[in-house]
Design a protein around this nucleic acid. Sequence first.
DNA 1: CCAAAAAATGTTACATTATATCATTGCGCA
DNA 2: TGCGCAATGATATAATGTAACATTTTTTGG
Lengths: 160, 160
Amino acid sequence: MNQDPILKPEVILEHAARYCAEHGSKLTTKRRQVLASLITSKKALSAYDLAEASRHGAEATLLPMSVYRILRFLQSIGLVHRLATANKYVACAHIACDHAHTTPQFLICKICSDVKEVGVANSIIDSIASAAETTGFRLLNDQLELECLCSECAVPELGA
Amino acid sequence: MNQDPILKPEVILEHAARYCAEHGSKLTTKRRQVLASLITSKKALSAYDLAEASRHGAEATLLPMSVYRILRFLQSIGLVHRLATANKYVACAHIACDHAHTTPQFLICKICSDVKEVGVANSIIDSIASAAETTGFRLLNDQLELECLCSECAVPELGA
DNA sequence: CCAAAAAATGTTACATTATATCATTGCGCA
DNA sequence: TGCGCAATGATATAATGTAACATTTTTTGG
Ligand SMILES: [Zn+2]
Ligand SMILES: [Zn+2]
Ligand SMILES: [Zn+2]
Ligand SMILES: [Zn+2]
């Protein structure tokens, strides 16, 4: 679970609605539905996963095209992150706090797609950025994605 | 250019052929052709880019499926790296040296796909790995990909 | 040298991820 | 009320990648 397990999804969604308002947009029913799926999922989900989920017990059925549009919106205001290495999406882990989080670092379980979002120490980002500048490149993206094994999926490896 | 510009492609390909032999395989004509395209390209290329390139002046025309297979082989012995964030491929920048390089860090120009492969200080990797372990994740991948602007593409931004 | 085995490649089909485009709906506001 | 914009529906298509089996080429053992 990427979110603080103490908080219920409804509480997080309330924060998200306020966050949308601050950006001059609204957390519509369908946007809320997509975000709720991501918040309650233990794993990163693909757009097609989300479209499929909308056909089981959700309020509305969503076509993939709509899911992509909604994901793009949620990303644009920082409520959702896209994991480029997995072609999947996760809810930001900091929706319910001040949300002024530092550079995110995503630990992505190679086996089960479980994702943990943690902050990267500024010292590390500074090191990386300065290493880039010595080669003439300017660092743009503030997101690290790391292939990992989560604690559960690592267990079978012990016997290997 | 990702490779040392002092070295001619043929020299690098000679090293690659020896490297293949050390792994019990051969640098066939088509594998050499794909690798040569990557070595001489200033940018990261997609599998379909490489298939397309094979239709212009190359010895043999390659279907995308063959390109994927060849790329997978070249990756498996470390001659090629896949950039997951860009869905593109680059030749390793260290084919002609001892090739015992440290964890690679790829600076990828968002605009033109120019790529620079540099080593990451072990201290940084250690910091990242230990940060992961405190959350129960074991770091697997030894590759960082960073979205950047190269020096050329950064220029227009000055007036923005 | 020849035949069997293994490696490499050809070929077709298909799966997954993502975007383009135009039509339609819903909703706030003059 | 109805205009205008944001949101969504619907269809088609592009881009990326894999599966499965056939064929060719190379290696190897007799
Ligand atoms: Zn976040
Ligand atoms: Zn796992
Ligand atoms: Zn390399
Ligand atoms: Zn550039």
